[in-house]
């Protein structure tokens, strides 16, 4: 046994870890999203200590080592290319193959006298316990969904309560992803949309007041806030089940408010409401990529209905602006 060859990681998060998390949340940079995979020590584990398995996404790794603070355990970090466990399991990088490969590469069996690996429950999409057992002899135990339940899970003799097995989507969890959604609405060629809308505003309200020229852009921003902030915040309370519908509702409210605040003429308020509704509906339905309860069959069903409606509402908004500008 040469434990000293296995690096020990701290269970205390530093200021640098907080900055790294902040950069990921605000989508400033994915540099540092991945940490090195491999075998690590938390505390001073012995041959009998449990082996906890996780992915190499920075935020996940930090949470897991923090939540294991005070225990003596082995931490096996799989190479998921800096992607979280659930997404990586769906994409096939948090997989039976990677688990067995990483265990073999790190020589895990030389450090422990048992054959049990504790995996996050959400890794089950990519890891088959039966396959791993049959191929390598390692016994996979699916632990709790959240790393903060690991201590209680281990203390209870590797037994999870129903609450530990259930996925949640609390207000705090929903709001944590708001920045990345908002920034996402303005990266790539999406960054051109505000300029295009300002151009359209200048064109249809030529010589008009600034508040009129800003109408299309204001409606778009209202839609982004409706879909990117109001939908996550009010998710359980917005009527209906389809995310595109929830988004449209939030966008209509935000667009209407924007039009009223800018004291736009009635037709322009209608146009603002339509565009904001369409934009928020689109951002809202894209929130299905973050929600932990939407099925692909359901998303496909609502997209087939909602996408044409979003297109129609946007075109109608454009027509109303032109009519107002030249006819009103």
């Amino acid at each position: 046994m040469t434990e000293s060859t296995v690096p020990q990681v701290s269970s205390t998060l530093s200021a640098a870890d907080t900055i790294a998390r902040w950069k990921l949340r605000w989508r400033i940079s994915r540099d540092g999203a991945a940490v090195s995979p491999g075998l690590f020590r938390i505390g001073e584990p012995s041959a009998e200590s449990p082996v906890i398995v996780t992915c190499n996404y920075r935020m996940t790794f930090d949470l897991v080592r923090r939540d294991l603070g005070g225990l003596d355990v082995w931490l096996l970090v799989l190479d998921t290319r800096g992607v979280n466990v659930w997404c990586a399991a769906g994409k096939g990088t948090f997989s039976s193959r990677e688990l067995m490969l990483r265990a073999a590469l790190t020589g895990l069996e030389r450090y422990v006298s048992h054959r049990t690996l504790v995996l996050p429950q959400l890794g089950a999409t990519g890891v088959s316990a039966a396959d791993v057992r049959a191929t390598s002899g390692w016994r996979v135990v699916f632990g709790p969904v959240r790393s903060r339940d690991l201590k209680a899970f281990l203390a209870a003799g590797m037994k999870a309560t129903p609450a530990m097995r259930a996925v949640t989507f609390t207000f705090a969890e929903r709001m944590a992803v708001v920045p990345v959604e908002l920034v996402g609405a303005f990266v790539g060629w999406f960054a051109l949309i505000p300029f295009a809308l300002l151009g359209i505003g200048a064109l249809v309200s030529w010589g008009g007041a600034a508040a009129l020229i800003a109408q299309p852009l204001a409606a778009y921003l209202a839609g982004v806030i409706g879909g990117g902030v109001l939908v996550p915040a009010l998710l359980p309370w917005l009527p209906g089940r389809a995310l595109s519908l929830k988004g449209a509702e939030a966008g209509v409210i935000a667009g209407l408010l924007a039009g009223l605040v800018l004291s736009a003429p009635p037709l322009m308020i209608a146009a603002d409401t339509l565009l904001a509704g369409a934009v928020a509906s689109y951002i809202g339905v894209n929130f299905t990529g973050t929600t932990p309860y939407t099925s692909p069959s359901g998303v496909e069903k609502e997209l087939r209905v909602a996408l044409p409606l979003m297109g129609a509402a946007s075109v109608l908004a454009g027509v109303l602006w032109v009519v107002q500008a030249f006819g009103g």
């Binding site: 990921l24 949340r25 989508r27 940079s29 994915r30 540099d31 540092g32 999203a33 991945a34 996404y57 935020m59 290319r81 800096g82 992607v83 979280n84 997404c87 992803v177 990345v180 959604e181 920034v183 996402g184 894209n286 929130f287 990529g289 973050t290």
Partner: peptide, 11 residues
């Protein structure tokens, strides 16, 4: 990309 996978691609 949406906020799934923590917001974006891999580094």
């Amino acid at each position: 990309a949406s906020a799934c996978c923590g917001g974006a691609p891999v580094a």
